Simulated scan of single mutants.
Amino acid sequence: MSTVAELVSALAWPLAFVWFVHKYGNDVKELILRLSKVKLGNAEAEFTLGLKAVEDLANESPLVESSTNLPEEDIEFSKRMAQLERIADVSPRAAIMESWLLIEEAAGRAGFVQGASVPRINPALFIDWLVREGKIEKSTAILVDKMRKLRNEAAHLGDFELTKDEAERYLKIAVQISLLIIEPELPDM
Rank of each mutant, 00 (worst) to 15 (best):
T3M: 05
T3N: 01
E6Y: 11
L7H: 10
L11D: 00
A12L: 10
P14F: 05
A16M: 15
F17S: 15
G25Q: 09
N26W: 02
V28F: 03
K29S: 12
E30N: 11
E30I: 00
L31P: 01
I32Q: 07
I32Y: 14
L33A: 15
L33M: 09
L35F: 15
K37M: 05
K37E: 09
K39D: 13
L40P: 02
F47L: 01
G50M: 02
G50V: 02
L51I: 00
A53E: 14
A53Y: 02
L57P: 02
N59L: 06
E60W: 02
P62K: 14
P62G: 08
L63Y: 08
E65R: 12
T68N: 09
T68E: 03
T68H: 10
T68I: 02
P71W: 01
E72N: 07
E72I: 07
I75G: 04
E76F: 01
F77G: 15
K79S: 12
K79P: 00
A82H: 12
Q83H: 15
Q83K: 03
R86T: 07
R86W: 13
I87R: 08
I87M: 07
A94H: 13
A95K: 08
I96M: 09
M97C: 06
E98Q: 08
W100S: 11
W100A: 04
L102I: 02
E105T: 14
E105P: 00
G108I: 03
R109V: 10
A110V: 08
A110R: 15
A110S: 09
F112W: 08
Q114S: 13
G115I: 07
S117G: 14
S117L: 10
P119K: 02
I121L: 08
N122G: 03
N122K: 07
P123I: 03
A124R: 12
W129I: 03
L130P: 10
L130V: 10
E133F: 03
G134C: 06
K138G: 03
T140C: 09
T140P: 00
I142W: 06
L143S: 08
K146C: 07
M147H: 07
M147T: 12
R148M: 15
E153I: 04
A154L: 01
D159K: 14
F160A: 04
L162Y: 12
T163S: 15
K164H: 14
R169M: 03
V175G: 06
Q176G: 10
I177Y: 10
L179G: 12
I181W: 12
E183I: 04
E185T: 15
L186Y: 15
D188A: 08
